[in-house]
Design a protein around this nucleic acid. Structure first.
Length: 573
RNA sequence: GGCAGCGUAGCUCAGUGGUAGAGCAGGGGAAUCAUAAUCCCUUGGUCGGGGGUUCAAAUCCCUCCGCUGCUACCA
């Protein structure tokens, strides 16, 4: 067998501070899972990695609010997010933690190597310190009066009123956003900077080499950062919770500081791979990342993460060369925002639908299909209950579910639930086979290209082709006069149900399994059909028993929509 | 302010130079196996406004308007 490409797939790390909403799911975790399942179904060796991003100020504050120490808080939240991922059938090979010992070691090693290569520099900075809160405050946690427009609740990084970029030092009467205390001191603090500016030429060459294979969104964001002049970035912070800066970097000036979350979080993609290997006793994890010429590495993320994955992390990797050959990303799939009735999903305001609540309402596959079929690929996309219900009812319940139902029930009623062997495929069947060969090739291409909306459009068209065929074949009519002809139609119908189970598996794995098992037991990974349809659709053995599954997708009623809108808030704005 | 994305049928969106498209919703019909589910036909748009280039513009250029986001210490 020829050496196949291996697929390394990462999704942007969900932050630790609470249950994620549908936007987080739609923008990275879910599409990554669908693609990983697709590649596995094709028989490719695939490694899907995700983790919780646990460091940074918001984690410390969330723990404080929860009355827990930050380690306990993170451990708890990690378990919650892992559980929700499992229930959404996000089948990562490993769901790690950026606070793991593996990531700590890698992050420190990477930093040491960057330091040795002269890409890091210690610089004196001024940081806001709140005596009352007894901690350094990130810029945005210092609020005060904007020196430009006089807005009295301007944040230290930017004034929301006049949109000017600020420095906490600029604020008039600064105070802590946490306690409101005005005892803010500006203290000197040495920090480590990554000299990104030195990497502009090679970064530009690398980014431009991907002009053809990154989406316009990702490419233009990456270019923008280059064009605006890449600045060196501080990669350490004055916090308790994080990866400590090793003593051998910076001559002891960085004692007690930790790395900035955006330095260690991407490294956790590698760290989680090591966690996976350690947990499973796998020896060669490095071959996925190091000198990995046979690996195609894909990253999934929403647009806010793009700069860190097209600039920050690549500079880190480049800075380790030539001594080390860690893998740079090959392909980045970026998504726009999912909005809730046109407004922002908001964790703090509890606006929108969150993963745990979504599962209380409906099974994961409903959400998975809807979110992939309406992925925010080209533009921000609005979630509405009305649209969700319309799509689920039509595509899943009517077009797919009802098809499986009508075929299997008719077989049970008229052919004793056994695949009928009489009759032969004729012109009608040959036309269907030709159409499906084409459509499946197209569907496969869209999945390979990660054009999710187009892929789902094609998948739906395949389901529709089944319904169209059945109408033309009309076994319920022929059964009265020509049993053999009816039998051929039912046999084709059952083969189509079997096919649909295969094609739908990456998107709606649980339902696809039920569909598949109506016809025959399903393997763990339901393989992508790679044979010609003439063979695949003539595969079932005559006489083989099938069964009619229960209703696959219950329809969403208007009363439910009303109830959910009331519960979650809806079109009030 | 700067930058980016978006603006196409009632809704959600394809379409990046060659006679405006899909799905849903709406209208008409067929069928009765099925979750009243399916299938066929069909109504519907001065492609955000204005100007320009071109034999030809939704598509390229200029300008204006609107929405959303980013702007490097939230992640």
């Amino acid at each position: 067998m020829r050496a196949m490409t291996r697929y390394l797939i990462t999704s942007a790390l969900p932050y630790i501070n609470g249950v994620k909403h549908l936007g987080n799911l739609a923008g990275s975790m879910l599409p990554a899972d669908v693609h990983a399942r697709f590649r596995r179904a094709q028989g490719h060796e695939t490694l899907a990695i995700c983790a919780t991003d646990e460091h940074g100020t918001p984690a410390e504050l969330a723990a404080l609010e929860a009355g827990q120490d930050v380690a306990t808080y993170c451990a708890e939240q990690h378990a919650i997010q892992k559980g929700l991922g499992d229930r959404f059938a996000l089948d990562w090979d490993y769901f790690g933690r950026s606070s793991s010992p593996q990531n700590r070691e890698l992050t420190q090693d990477f930093a040491r190597a960057l330091w040795r290569n002269g890409h890091l520099e210690v610089r004196a900075t001024k940081q806001a310190f709140s005596a009352t809160d007894r901690r350094f405050l990130p810029d945005r946690y210092v609020i005060g009066t904007c020196p430009h427009c006089g807005y009295d609740r301007a944040r230290g990084d930017q004034c929301e009123n006049c949109t000017r970029v600020l420095d906490p030092v600029d604020l008039i009467s600064p105070r802590s956003a946490l306690s409101g205390a005005a005892d803010i001191e500006i203290r000197d603090s040495a920090h480590l900077f990554l000299k990104q500016s030195e990497f502009v030429p090679q970064l530009r060459a690398w980014i431009e080499s991907h002009a053809g294979d990154w989406s316009g969104l990702v490419y233009s964001i990456a270019r923008k950062w280059l064009e605006e002049g890449l600045q060196d970035r501080g990669i350490t912070r004055d916090l308790e919770w994080g990866v400590p800066v090793p003593d051998d970097i910076g001559d002891g000036q960085l004692k007690g500081k930790v790395f900035y979350v955006w330095f260690d979080a991407p490294i956790e993609y590698i760290g989680a791979t090591k966690e996976w290997a350690d947990a499973r006793g796998i020896a060669d994890w490095r071959s996925w990342w190091y000198a990995a010429k046979d690996v195609c590495y894909l990253e999934f993320m929403a647009k806010d993460n793009v700069p860190f994955h097209t600039v920050g992390f690549p500079v880190t990797i480049m800075g380790l060369r030539p001594q080390h050959d860690w893998k740079l990303v090959d392909r980045i799939k970026g998504f726009n925002w999912l909005t809730y009735y046109g407004g922002k999903f908001s964790t703090s305001q509890r606006r929108g639908v969150f993963m745990a609540a979504a599962l209380e309402i409906l099974p994961a596959d409903y959400w998975r299909y809807y979110r992939i079929a309406n992925a925010p690929e080209g533009a921000d996309t609005s979630f509405t209950w009305e649209h969700f219900a319309a799509v689920v009812n039509k595509d899943l319940a009517d077009v797919l579910g009802n098809f499986a139902n009508r075929v299997t029930k008719f077989c049970v009623a008229r052919f004793d639930g056994l695949v009928p062997g009489e009759g032969a495929y004729e012109a009608e069947e040959r036309a269907l086979i030709a159409e499906l060969d084409q459509r499946i090739a197209q569907y496969t291409r869209h999945m390979e290209d990660i054009e999710l909306r187009k892929a789902m459009g094609e998948l739906r068209a395949i389901f529709v082709a089944g319904n169209e065929y059945l109408t033309r074949a009309a076994p319920w009519t022929h059964i009265k006069t020509d049993r053999a002809r009816a039998a051929a139609g039912v046999r084709m119908g059952l083969n189509l149900v079997h096919l649909f189970g295969h094609l739908a598996w990456p998107v709606i794995p649980a339902s696809a399994r039920v569909i598949h098992e109506a016809i025959m037991p399903a393997p763990e990974i339901i393989p992508w059909p790679d044979e010609a349809m003439a063979e695949f659709l003539d595969d079932l053995d005559p006489g083989q028993p099938i069964r009619a599954p229960d209703v696959l997708f219950a329809k969403i009623a208007d009363e439910q929509i009303a109830e959910w809108k009331a519960r979650f808030g809806g079109a009030e704005d």
